[in-house]
Amino acid sequence: MRIALIYKELNTLLSSWVGVIAISAFFLISGLFLWVLPGSNFWDYGYADPDLFFEMASFLLLFILPLLSVGLFSQEFKHDTIETLQSLPTSMFHITLAKFLAAVIFCMVLLVLAIPMITVLNDVSPNVPLDYQALLGSFIGLFLLGACYISFSLFASVVSEELATSVIVAIVIGFLFYYGFEYAAELFSLDDSTGYLIRSLGFAGRSDDLSKGVLPLSTIVYLGSICLLFILGTYALLTHKLKSI
């Protein structure tokens, strides 16, 4: 896999107006909910701990990251540039991986932009220092969740050439993973051990750990496995589609 491939994809993402609108939406919505609107803000929460931000961000990214990354393949199909990609002296798997990594780097850029919030949290509770170790853990956790959402978007971008359809598919998959298992366990009133197992497949409970700076190895491996499966799924669907062109 060539670095140039990642650079090319990152270049596209960084210059995309959709991307900047999505980032703006992320900070505007999270900022309004966390600092301005009553009921869910830090003011009512009472604590200057970043876990409230991470909880909200892990949910918001479910909608924002698909907006940023569903164009990765669907746009190639739409503008017939997929054939150009095919002609490159590199495998389709490497191209898939490059697109995924470029989107992941872009996600990191988005998270870096949240750093001013940390300064404010330090400022409004000056007597007790912020737990930077926990903060690092929370960032790693959010990044892992973000990588999963991107793998869903990547897969969705192959499912349809239509951007809107791809966005919906990506959000639905993300939503199923976030809340679906939780709802399923509740809906079928599953007994404790089965219910516990089903719930543990969802992201909602896991993101609770991650937002506090707790990284269970099982969550890291689970999220990594989901990413891998969806990247491989993307590759399999892509090659299948290309064969039929």
Binding site: V36, F42, Y47, L113, P116, M117, V120, V124
Partner: peptide, 26 residues
């Protein structure tokens, strides 16, 4: 200890914080 928000400090610089957290990243 819990990091309880100093409401007065927040109130005094509210709009500066809004800009810093919402406006600046955008």
């Amino acid at each position: 200890s819990a990091r309880i928000i100093d409401r007065k400090a927040f109130d005094d610089r509210k709009y500066y914080y809004y800009f810093f957290m919402i406006g600046l990243p955008i």
